[in-house]
Simulated scan of single mutants.
Amino acid sequence: MGIGFTNRLAAIMYTRKPAFGRRIVLIDIENIVGGGVLMPEQVQAAQAAIAAAVVPRNDDQVVIACGRFSIDVVGFEWRGPRRLVFRAGMNGADLELLDILETERVGDRFAEIVLVSGDGIFAEVVSRLGLHADVSVASRTESCSRRLRMAAKRVLDIDYDPNAIMEAA
Rank of each mutant, 00 (worst) to 15 (best):
M1T: 11
G2M: 11
G2V: 12
I3F: 04
I3D: 05
F5W: 07
F5H: 09
T6I: 03
N7R: 00
A10R: 02
I12K: 04
R16I: 02
P18D: 06
P18W: 03
F20M: 09
R22W: 00
R22A: 04
R23A: 10
D28Q: 09
E30K: 07
N31Y: 10
I32W: 12
I32C: 14
L38W: 01
M39C: 06
E41W: 01
Q44L: 13
A45N: 14
A45P: 14
A46S: 07
I50P: 07
I50N: 08
A52N: 08
V54P: 02
P56M: 13
D59Y: 01
Q61K: 04
V62Q: 01
V63M: 00
A65T: 13
A65H: 10
A65S: 14
A65Q: 14
R68Y: 06
R68L: 11
F69S: 15
F76N: 14
R79P: 09
G80Q: 01
P81A: 00
R82K: 07
R83S: 06
V85S: 03
F86T: 14
D94W: 07
L95H: 11
E96K: 09
E96D: 04
E102D: 12
R105A: 09
G107I: 02
G107F: 02
D108S: 07
I113D: 00
L115E: 09
G118V: 04
F122H: 08
A123K: 05
V125Y: 00
R128T: 01
L129D: 08
L131V: 05
D134Y: 00
S136I: 01
A138L: 12
C144F: 14
R147M: 11
A151G: 06
K153F: 04
R154T: 05
D159T: 09
A168N: 14
A168V: 15
